Measured scan of single mutants.
Amino acid sequence: MDPFVVLVLCLSCLLLLSIWRQSSGRGKLPPGPTPLPVIGNILQIDIKDVSKSLTNLSKIYGPVFTLYFGLERMVVLHGYEVVKEALIDLGEEFSGRGHFPLAERANRGFGIVFSNGKRWKEIRRFSLMTLRNFGMGKRSIEDRVQEEARCLVEELRKTKASPCDPTFILGCAPCNVICSIIFQKRFDYKDQQFLNLMEKLNENIRIVSTPWIQICNNFPTIIDYFPGTHNKLLKNLAFMESDILEKVKEHQESMDINNPRDFIDCFLIKMEKEKQNQQSEFTIENLVITAADLLGAGTETTSTTLRYALLLLLKHPEVTAKVQEEIERVIGRNRSPCMQDRGHMPYTDAVVHEVQRYIDLIPTSLPHAVTCDVKFRNYLIPKGTTILTSLTSVLHDNKEFPNPEMFDPRHFLDEGGNFKKSNYFMPFSAGKRICVGEGLARMELFLFLTFILQNFNLKSLIDPKDLDTTPVVNGFASVPPFYQLCFIPV
Rank of each mutant, 00 (worst) to 15 (best):
D2I: 08
L11T: 15
C13W: 10
L16V: 13
S18L: 13
W20R: 11
S23V: 11
P30L: 02
P31L: 06
P33S: 01
I47G: 10
S51F: 03
T55N: 12
T55F: 10
N56C: 13
S58H: 12
K59D: 09
Y61F: 07
Y61G: 01
G62V: 01
V64E: 01
V64T: 04
V64G: 01
T66V: 07
L67I: 12
L71Q: 15
L77Q: 00
E81K: 10
D89G: 09
G91Y: 05
S95P: 03
F110P: 03
V113R: 11
R125D: 09
T130A: 11
L131A: 04
G137Q: 15
K138C: 15
S140I: 06
E142C: 07
Q146H: 12
Q146L: 13
K158E: 15
A161E: 12
P163L: 08
C164H: 09
T167D: 04
T167L: 07
C172K: 11
V177P: 01
S180Y: 07
I181M: 10
I182L: 12
I182R: 02
F187R: 08
K190R: 13
D191W: 01
N202I: 07
R206V: 08
I213E: 05
I213V: 14
Q214F: 07
C216N: 04
C216R: 06
N217C: 15
I223H: 06
P227S: 10
K232W: 06
L245W: 10
H251S: 04
H251D: 00
E253A: 11
N258T: 12
P260Q: 05
K275D: 08
N277V: 11
Q279D: 11
L287H: 00
T290C: 10
D293F: 03
L294P: 01
T302C: 09
L306H: 00
L306R: 00
Y308P: 00
L312M: 12
L314M: 15
V319N: 04
T320R: 07
T320V: 11
V323H: 00
Q324H: 09
E326K: 01
I331F: 03
I331P: 03
G332R: 04
C338I: 10
Q340C: 05
R342M: 12
H344W: 11
A350E: 00
V351P: 00
V351W: 03
E354C: 01
Q356R: 02
T364C: 14
L366C: 06
V370S: 09
C372S: 11
R377D: 04
N378H: 12
K383V: 06
T385C: 08
T385Q: 04
S390F: 02
S393M: 01
N398C: 15
M406V: 12
L413R: 01
D414P: 02
N418Q: 14
F419M: 08
N423M: 13
Y424V: 02
I434C: 08
G437H: 02
E438Y: 10
L449Q: 03
T450V: 08
T450C: 08
T450S: 13
F451L: 07
L458A: 01
I462T: 13
L467N: 04
T469P: 10
L485N: 03
P489T: 04
V490R: 15
